[in-house]
Computed example of a mutant assay.
Amino acid sequence: MKFKLSGLLVVFTTGAAIALYAPTSVAQSSITMYGVLDMFGGYQNTKIGGKSTSMTVLGNNGELTSRWGLRGHEDLGGGYQVNFALESGFDPGTGSLQNSYRFFDRQAWVGLGSGYGEIRFGRQNTPMFAWSGNMDAFSAATYASGYNDFANWLARVDNDIAYISPKFAGTQVELHYSVGGKPGTLAGNAVYQAAIQTSQGPVYFSAAYLNAANAIASTRVQEIMLGGNVDYGMGKIYLGYFRANDIISATTGNALSNPAGKYDPAVGPVGNSAGQWHSTYSLSADYRVSPFFSVGVGAAYIKDSSSLDNDAAQWGAIANYDLSKATRIYGTISELKNYGTAQYKMTGASITTGTFLTPSAGQREFGAQVGFRHLF
């Protein structure tokens, strides 16, 4: 009898456990770890304080920002799924975090998707940042990208609620609202975004608009991005346009508190000083010499709409050689010319202190890189 009762207890316990965990075991889920390692040898030369100054450096984040991340997916059934992403940037040269104020500085969001699209909540990339590489032969990065050096778009936003539509006829729409978190106002520190991208045969085109306010909604930054590319068979021709009032033309600063999204979370996205309107124009092209080797050239110009006329121009060239699907060697060469008292500088995928020079007002700058990039 004792044995029978024990056996019944085992059967009951096992059956309860199966019933409890059956839904979880049926659902399809996955978690993927991924990342980027990018380092380069860089050289820059410019005049600072009337003196020719050169810098040779082992730098981080030339073509892509080094990072590691986790992304996950769970199938809920009925066409619904839960998705998430956590992503942290770092400098491989020192192992330090890209952003000392936060660990997952790049992305930290969770979303619910279906055939009607996806809704996401959390820290997210802006469409401008995500799509800018489709408008530039330099992928909107490296010393050589004038589009990246001049067009200072907001890269990512906290507390963002986003709707991402399904693709219809090659077209996708995104709508974003970032909750400012200021008591008594929905406008303070809020960020609004609307964007559309489409692929039609060999043609890709996208457009995005961003409107961000400071804590009391007295200063607003507005950004407009337009551009795309055409695949001509052996490469692509790229066009990029960006207009914003975030850059203060008399300096290298801007009205954005955090153009790269690296600010102290206690600080809002926009400061209290309005910037001047600037327009950036970019034209570039690449050519596939082989499936593994490509070259590209391009030029960009930024027009200061204020009376200061602090314009700037830049040309650049790049070569990419893929050792495998995951590993690339790249090299760039470029020259930037500042006019008036402008002080634009060559940066990269993510600025790291000590890996760039800031020219004196109105000075030229020359730069070159040889880099190594690995995806995992």
Rank of each mutant, 00 (worst) to 15 (best):
M1K: 12
L5G: 10
S6Q: 07
V10W: 05
T13H: 02
G15C: 10
A16L: 11
A19I: 05
Y21L: 05
Y21P: 00
S25D: 06
A27Y: 12
Q28V: 09
Q28N: 10
I31Q: 12
T32P: 01
M33I: 12
V36H: 07
D38M: 06
T46L: 05
S54K: 06
V57I: 14
S66A: 12
R67L: 15
R67F: 12
G69I: 09
G72H: 03
H73T: 11
G79F: 04
Y80I: 01
L86C: 00
P92C: 03
T94V: 02
N99H: 03
S100A: 07
S100P: 01
S100N: 04
F103P: 07
F104A: 09
D105H: 01
A108F: 11
V110H: 09
R123S: 11
P127H: 12
S145N: 09
S145C: 11
Y147P: 05
Y147C: 04
D149H: 06
A155P: 00
V157C: 02
D158C: 00
D160C: 03
I161M: 08
I161A: 07
Y163H: 00
K167G: 11
A169H: 06
Q172P: 01
E174F: 03
L175G: 06
S178F: 02
V179D: 05
V179L: 07
L186Q: 06
A190F: 02
Q197E: 05
P202W: 04
Y209K: 02
L210S: 05
L210D: 04
A212L: 02
A212N: 00
A215V: 05
A217R: 02
R220F: 01
R220G: 04
L226Q: 05
N229T: 06
V230E: 06
G233T: 04
G235R: 04
L239I: 12
I248K: 09
S249V: 08
S249L: 06
A250S: 11
A255Y: 02
A266M: 10
Q276I: 10
Y281R: 08
L283Y: 09
V289N: 13
S290P: 10
F293G: 13
F293L: 15
V295G: 15
A299Y: 14
A300G: 14
K303V: 13
K303E: 15
S306L: 13
S306T: 14
D309G: 13
N310F: 14
N310P: 14
G316W: 14
N320T: 15
L323I: 15
A326K: 15
T327D: 15
I329T: 08
I329N: 14
K337D: 14
N338C: 15
Y339L: 15
G340V: 14
A342G: 15
I351H: 08
T353W: 00
T353E: 00
T353M: 00
P359W: 07
G362K: 12
G362W: 08
G362L: 10
E365D: 13
F366G: 07
Q369H: 10
H374P: 07
